[in-house]
């Protein structure tokens, strides 16, 4: 990790037209404070990579509602009616990717792989325009690795080195996304002196900046 930073410093790390991976599953595990700041900054023409479209008032849905997203790559958009509307009017491009393929493409992006071979999507429209390879007599779709300019993730405990744990089902896409972008900013919920090295889920070498969540009340 390079350093802890204030939320306001997010402006130094974003630019119009960039691609951003955002952790979370139906907004559970999404770093809401970082999303709110990005909405305030008004950064435009974003490609957002996230499991889903969130809700109009939660998760990446807030960026969609504010018109900042030109391309959404997700597995599901059903809980955010605005995402469906913007897709049908052509105001936002939506690329739907099977959830397991999305996770694995991101993992490959962080792991130095060119992509993955998966049986998921064979014989469906997901296969269209893709290469099919046969390995040991079985067909697989070639799904390319995915990376982004920035990952915004939600951590739970963070130590002073930037090692991270996650809490319960907020983990979801956060650990893989922490490996697959040029820059990684984590929102931490609890600052601790030390973490048991065996309990670290994202090693600090993947994390560039940590913003600690302001505790309310």
């Amino acid at each position: 990790m390079k350093q802890f930073m204030e939320l306001k410093q997010l402006k130094d790390h974003v630019f119009d037209g960039m691609s951003i991976m955002v952790g979370g599953f139906m907004a559970v595990g999404t770093p809401e404070a970082l999303i709110d700041e990005l909405v305030l900054l008004g950064t435009k023409d974003l490609t957002i990579i996230c499991n889903d479209a969130g809700f109009i008032d939660r998760g990446v849905g807030k960026l969609i509602a504010s018109g900042q997203v030109s391309h959404l790559i997700a597995s599901h958009i059903g809980l955010n009616p605005m995402a469906g509307q913007l897709m049908s009017t052509g105001e936002m491009q939506v690329t739907l990717v099977p959830q397991g393929t999305l996770a694995e493409r991101i993992r490959a992006g962080g792991a130095g792989l060119g992509g993955v071979l998966t049986p998921t999507g064979l014989g469906t429209i997901v296969e269209e325009g893709k290469q099919v390879l046969s390995v040991a007599g079985k067909p697989y779709l070639v799904e390319p690795a995915m990376r982004a300019d920035l990952s915004l993730i939600l951590a739970y405990e963070v130590d002073r080195f930037g090692n991270i744990t996650y809490n319960k089902t907020t983990r979801n896409f956060n650990p893989v996304m922490a490996t697959a972008s040029d820059k990684v900013i984590a929102l931490g919920r609890k600052l601790v002196d030390e973490l048991n090295p065996d309990h670290v889920l994202t090693p600090h070498i993947f994390v560039d900046y940590v913003v600690m969540e302001v505790q309310h009340g």
Binding site: M87, Q99, G121
Partner: peptide
Amino acid sequence: SLANWIIPGKMVPGMGGAMDLVTG
């Protein structure tokens, strides 16, 4: 074979994890 993730022109929620689940 099954179809449960899209009605073209009407409803496009996405496949979520369904394609992986039925394949694996």
